[in-house]
C-alpha cells in the first residue's frame, strides 16, 4: 500500500531516499509511461509503443522493458543497464499534485508528496531531501524538475494521442518473438504508428502535425522499434548457455 505524505522540511528533515536500481525497490517493471519530451532519449534505448489504460481505454505511450509482467531486461545485479532512465521511473517515490492556496485568485500551487511506504525511504542510506537548516537538497531539486516535466508530459500526451487518432495514425501491432531456444512469446495490447496512413497524409495535415511538434514524436516512435531487437538480444542473453 502507498502512504503519501505532503513533503515538509520539518517532518521529513532526516528522510533519505535510496536511488539504486533494483527489483527490491520496485524497478522490475515491464514498461513505464513516457512522454514526447523525452522520446528522443528514450528511443535510443527502448522501443516505444502505445497502450490502452485499463480504466479508461485511453491510449498512452510506453517504453517497453520486458516481455512479461515483472520482467525488466534492463535491470541486472549492477543496476539499470541504460544511460537514460525514463522520467516516470525516476520520479519514485514522489508524486506531484496541485493545491489551492488560501488566496483563491491565485493559481493552484504545485506540491510534492512522498510515499513513506516505499522501500527506498529510510533515514540512513541514500540521498537526503533537505539540508541541515531546511534548504532543499540538490537531489530534491532534481526530483522536482522530473515531476514538473512529467506534469507537462501528461498534457502533451493527451494532445499527441488526440492528433494521432484524428489522423488514423494508430494501429494495433502483434509482436511475436522467437528466442534462440525456439520458444515463442506474443505481446498483446500494443499499438504503434500506422505508417501506411502516415504516408498517405495530405501536405496540409502533415504541416499541421509538424507545426504542433507531433511529427517528430511520430518518427521517434517509428525509429524506436529498432530497439526491439535490443530487447530480444537481452532476453536471449539470459537464456541458460548450452
Amino acid at each position: 500500500m502507498n502512504n503519501y505524505e505532503l513533503l515538509n522540511n520539518v517532518k521529513h528533515q532526516s528522510v533519505k531516499v535510496i536511488t539504486d536500481r533494483s527489483a527490491d525497490y520496485g524497478d522490475n517493471l515491464q514498461f513505464a509511461v513516457t512522454f514526447p519530451l523525452e522520446f528522443r532519449r528514450i528511443q535510443s534505448h527502448y522501443p516505444i509503443f502505445l497502450q490502452k489504460d485499463n480504466e479508461t481505454g485511453k491510449f498512452f505511450p510506453i517504453a517497453l522493458f520486458g516481455f512479461e509482467a515483472g520482467e525488466n531486461l534492463y535491470l541486472s545485479e549492477n543496476g539499470w543497464d541504460a544511460e537514460y532512465i525514463p522520467l516516470s521511473v525516476k520520479r519514485h517515490p514522489f508524486v506531484i499534485g496541485y493545491q489551492q492556496t488560501s488566496d483563491p485568485t491565485q493559481e493552484k500551487q504545485a506540491v510534492i508528496s512522498i510515499d513513506m511506504e516505499s522501500p527506498r525511504v529510510n533515514e540512513t542510506e541514500g540521498e537526503a531531501l533537505f539540508q541541515e537548516h531546511g534548504g532543499t537538497s540538490s537531489y530534491l531539486s532534481t526530483v522536482t524538475e522530473v515531476l514538473e516535466s512529467i506534469q507537462v508530459g501528461i498534457e502533451m500526451n493527451e494532445e499527441f494521442i488526440d492528433a494521432l487518432l484524428e489522423h488514423d495514425l494508430v494501429e494495433s501491432v502483434n509482436m511475436e518473438i522467437e528466442l534462440k531456444d525456439g520458444s515463442r512469446n506474443q505481446l498483446l495490447g500494443l499499438y504503434t504508428i500506422n505508417e501506411d496512413n502516415l504516408e498517405q497524409l495530405e501536405a496540409e495535415a502533415l504541416g499541421k502535425l509538424h507545426q504542433q511538434r507531433h511529427l517528430q514524436s511520430i518518427y521517434m516512435i517509428m525509429a524506436s522499434l529498432s530497439s526491439f531487437s535490443t530487447l530480444i538480444q537481452k532476453r536471449n542473453d539470459r537464456l541458460p548457455q548450452e
Binding site: 480504466e55 481505454g57 499499438y191
Partner: peptide
Amino acid sequence: TKVHKFGFQKI
C-alpha cells in the same frame, strides 16, 4: 458510465 465519461476507442 465509462462510455459516457471516456468513450470507446475506434481501434
